[in-house]
Every structure is written in C-alpha cells, then in structure tokens.
Computed example of a mutant assay.
Amino acid sequence: MIVLDCTLRDGGYYNSWNFPQHVVEQYLQAMEAANVNIVELGMRSLKNEGFKGAAGFTTEDYLDTLPIPTSLKVGVMVNASELASAPSLEEALDSLFPKDADKSKVDLVRIACHVHEFEQALPACVWLKERGFLVGFNLMQVAERSQTEVEALALAASKYDIDALYFADSMGSMGPEQCKTIITWFKKHWNGAIGIHTHDNMGKALQNTLTAIEEGVTWLDATVTGMGRGPGNARTEELVIEVAALQGKNVNLVPLMAIIRSYFQPLKNKCGWGSNPFYFLSGKYGIHPTFIQEMLSDPRYSEEDILAAIEHLRVEGGSKFSFNTLDATRNFFKEKGKGAWSPKSQILGKSVLILG
C-alpha cells in the first residue's frame, strides 16, 4: 500500500497555497515519521493567477530549498484542462517540467482530469515516462458516471503505462457499496494499480478508503486534518494508523500531532474545513462542494440563504462550480424571497426546501 499525503496541494484551496517554510519543513519530518510514502507538495501550472504561495507552482528552485527526507517521494499535480487548452501538449509539458526526473526533486506527476479530458490528456503519460517520472491520472466525478462510461475509461487507460489510475469522489456522495462497484468496473479492463481520493462531505472518506483497500486499491490519498477543498478528505493521522495496523508496523505520530496542534488545527478553526450539514447535503444531492465553501466564507450568506441555494442547485444542477452559477442562484432566491428549512418538508425521505 502507498499512502500519498496531498495536504500542501489540496489544502491550498484554503490558503492560496501559502504554507510558511518552517511549517513545510516540520510537515516533511512528520510525514517521514508517520510512514507516508509520497508527499504531493503542490501544483505545477501554466497560469499566473490564483496562487499566492510557493505550493501553487512547486518550482524546481522552491523544491531545492526543502530538506526532503530520502524516504519520501515527491509529487506534483497538473490540471488536464491546462494541457488540453495548450497549443502544443509537448511544449506545455516542457515548460512545466524543464528537468528530467533524474535531475529533479519531482518523482511523481499526477494529472487531474474530468472525464471529457481524459483521452486527450493520456498522451502526456508517454512524454513524462520517457523522462523518468512516475505518472498518475486522477479521474474526477467518476461516482456520477455509468458502468459503460467507467469501463470505457479503464479501457483507454489500459493502452498507456500509467503507474496509478485514481478515481476521486469529487462530490463526496459515494458510499462503500458504490465504491466497491466502481472498482469492479475499473478492473474490467484495467489491471494496474488503482488509487482512491475521497472527500468527506458525508463523513465517509476514511470508510470508503478502507473499503477500497479491501477491494485491492493500493494508492491511498489523505491530508493532515483532512485539509482540502470543501469539506476536505480522509485524514492522514487516521489513515496511517489503519495502514500500519494492516501491515503490522508501528507508526510514530508524535511529530504529526505536534504540527497539527501548532499549525493545522488553528488554521482549521479559522477556515472551517470538515463535514457539516451543508456539505452533507451537497454530497447527498451531487452539488460541487466549492459552492458551499464559497458561501460559508461570504458574510452575505445566512444559514437560510445557504440552504435555499442548496435547494436551488439540487433542482437546477450544481455538479460543476462556477461563480456565475453561484451569483445566478443567489439572485434567484432573492427574487423569490428568503428560504425556510422546514421539518414539515421531510416527505418520503427527501429533504425539500420550502421557498416562500
């Protein structure tokens, strides 16, 4: 089993990828002590906006400043949308990865793909493997896809030398049984390593990850305190305990718990990631968790407003986040009047928001 901690990449959605240098150094030592195998230290991006901290670009110069323990492999993530929109895939990759793996601190490159981007992004695997990198592909929103679609994705992947084919529970809507089913669909055509990246909207991130292990999944994502977009992910401090037990190993949690106390827990208290009823509803209704994250951070939204917006997105569809959709949703329920979340609306097991 391979535990991949992606705190500095996924957690960056809360602090614009701005992690203090001394925190990163403590984090690396904590990951080594906790038997983590790979640390995904951030993004590699062709864009210049949206990132304030070094983990937004994870440049070679930045990586050279870090005391990375020899036991840890280093990963970075690239968005397939950037590769797909580039005039030349090869030129884009050459810009993102100017050094081959043997001269770079980067060992693993993961490409995050929506389903419609997957086949267009797959040739990047050839370029990266020729330069010595491990390559992973993270398929997003797979839990919302049919058996035919998932099996087709697995068949396309089988034609490439991918080190790990991940599926992400992007909406946090998946349960253990669906997790098992999706893995079965992947195995129809994909014989390589499978990875899982879970979200904790409904409090099932760790449960789904452990279920995936039982079904033969070997690459496991987690983040410290679950720090990640929306409600966050499976928590590294819990997953490493479970993996150590399965492997019959000891795990040293002292450095990890120390940095949680000094940095991550105070930041969590400030930023508010973690499951709550709003995120639970977003998972239940297939609504992108960024809608919730944005509303929770915006003082214009009261509890009534958020619940009204969730109901509107449930009806109209909210699987893809955009600020335009969020603004349109706010304008809709403002015109209709404030929403009221009523217990009387609990009909046939469905939670319905009454606008009036």
Results as ranks from 00 to 15, higher is better:
L83C: 08
N191A: 14
D102H: 14
G339R: 08
G230Q: 08
A55Q: 14
V78L: 13
T225W: 09
G172S: 12
V315E: 11
L139G: 12
D102S: 11
A205D: 03
M43E: 04
V76R: 07
A124G: 13
E119Y: 00
R110D: 03
Q178W: 10
E177S: 14
A157T: 02
I310G: 02
P255I: 07
G195E: 05
G337A: 09
L296T: 06
K73T: 05
Y301W: 15
A340N: 11
L96I: 11
C271F: 09
P69M: 10
I259M: 13
N250I: 06
S71T: 15
R235M: 15
A112F: 04
E32S: 15
I196P: 00
V352W: 03
L93Q: 10
K47R: 15
G317Q: 05
A245F: 00
I347L: 13
G228Y: 00
G172V: 10
D305R: 13
A54S: 12
L267D: 00
G272C: 03
V254M: 07
K284W: 04
M77R: 12
E335L: 13
E316L: 09
K129W: 00
Y166I: 01
L153N: 08
L353K: 06
V115Q: 12
S345L: 13
G356C: 07
E149F: 00
A156S: 15
E90Y: 11
Y166E: 01
E237G: 04
S297G: 09
K270P: 00
G232Q: 12
L46S: 11
Y160K: 06
P299C: 06
E119V: 11
L134D: 06
V217F: 01
Q141S: 13
I347R: 14
T290R: 15
T58H: 04
Y301S: 02
S71A: 15
V39M: 09
S297N: 14
L63T: 06
V74P: 02
G230S: 08
S275V: 08
E82M: 14
F167N: 04
M295R: 06
T70H: 12
F167Q: 04
E177F: 14
Q293A: 14
G274Q: 06
D163T: 03
V135H: 09
L206T: 11
V254I: 12
F291M: 07
V3I: 15
L165G: 00
K187D: 01
Y301C: 03
H114E: 09
Q346A: 12
E151K: 15
H199M: 10
K270D: 10
Q26C: 04
F291W: 06
